[in-house]
Design a protein around this nucleic acid. Sequence first.
DNA 1: ATCATATCGATAAATTTTTATCGATATGAT
DNA 2: ATCATATCGATAAAAATTTATCGATATGAT
Lengths: 233, 233
Amino acid sequence: MEKPLATTQRLPKYLAYLKIRQKQGIESISTSRIAEDLNMAAISVRKDLARISNAGRPKTGYPMDALIADLERFLGYGNARDAFLVGAGRLGQALMGYAQFAEYGLSILAGFDIDPALIGSEIDGKPILPLEKLPGLARRMQVKVGILTVPEDAAQETFALMVESGIRAVWNFTAIPLSAPPGVVLQNENLAASFAVLSKRLAATFDEEGVSGEVPCGTFAPPNEKREGGHQS
Amino acid sequence: MEKPLATTQRLPKYLAYLKIRQKQGIESISTSRIAEDLNMAAISVRKDLARISNAGRPKTGYPMDALIADLERFLGYGNARDAFLVGAGRLGQALMGYAQFAEYGLSILAGFDIDPALIGSEIDGKPILPLEKLPGLARRMQVKVGILTVPEDAAQETFALMVESGIRAVWNFTAIPLSAPPGVVLQNENLAASFAVLSKRLAATFDEEGVSGEVPCGTFAPPNEKREGGHQS
DNA sequence: ATCATATCGATAAATTTTTATCGATATGAT
DNA sequence: ATCATATCGATAAAAATTTATCGATATGAT
């Protein structure tokens, strides 16, 4: 029960899926069903869920409510994380307005920027404040999570400022390699990297299957146990 | 030489780093140096790079230009990928304006939307067009890559439309689980999933190290061989 | 009540990924 | 020219992850 790192990345996906199903009024669900809808191997889903819940029962699967509760507890979504976002440009604004986050335990309280044109405005009811107010507010409000969406040439110093302000986890959307001092969690969200994987997979598909003609578009995939689609993200 | 999947995700990171170094005028670089700056295990970098280049030489490392060239060739960045983006809301606009993409082989030609207020406007010189023009344009221009940034309730049908339009690779930014028909590459970019990992790591840090006081902020990490930071993205 | 079956959960095998070890070699110093 | 050394590249070991196998059990049908 030590290091289910790869698993952790898949859990929110299950949660997102389950919430959709829940809204549809479904009250229990089996791992095989989840797997089919998510284009994953059933065995894989079973293993992942077994790790965080034992509410599963033969024949019926998991009770929807219990499974969602267990997932949320494991992911720590009960105690929502307050966050500050620095760099309220287009990407920053997009993240501030990303409704999904609220549902998954992330609450962006405010954005910070140095652009006078942005300061004072609001995104989804969240204020954009002058950067110099960050240290004071972060300390006072005990905000531990920071989102870094500044231009590249400001990344380094902004990161340092965030750490000095007491922020302990930084979600870095810039392409600049940063170094986190001990005790500070740094996670790089490299969109270019994701695209590279997509591009590589597309190339592989062309090479292996040849440039074929049309492909029919179904909404659901055939219920094979083994699927190569539905990559992690 | 078959399946370096995990590796592929790291390669663009090296590329981003190398380009920065190149701008600084550095002409050759060792894997140990890369590893240090990127907070990775040196052995890991060596293995990754050995896979895609053999320009490395003892004592000096890799010639910068050759290494970058090999990386770009492997990642297929020579032949830039043209893409259409569907759903020009805040997130869509942010991606359309994301300058980094151009440098890494992704070229978003246009955005599509159904909102009359958006149609006709431009983001970074790229037009936002009415959705009904997507199928015709995608076919005519042979665009194979699509970026899906529509609201959740439109995800399913929009995805189907993209596939019908001949798009073969879809980068899905919605939380809706989609099923790709055979021959279509679907990659889910789940920001909530990324955040979950960050959140979990932060929680782990608190648990293990206790809630300690201040942390000094250095710009570079100590040159340890083994680092647990600098996660994948 | 009995039985066939879908599903879980545990154990084990296979695969992939990471980390380690070590010899070969080009570089720069003596 | 010789030598010490940093670094690559290959091979091997270790660790993590995925996939497979199989018995146990609750459910719903007969």
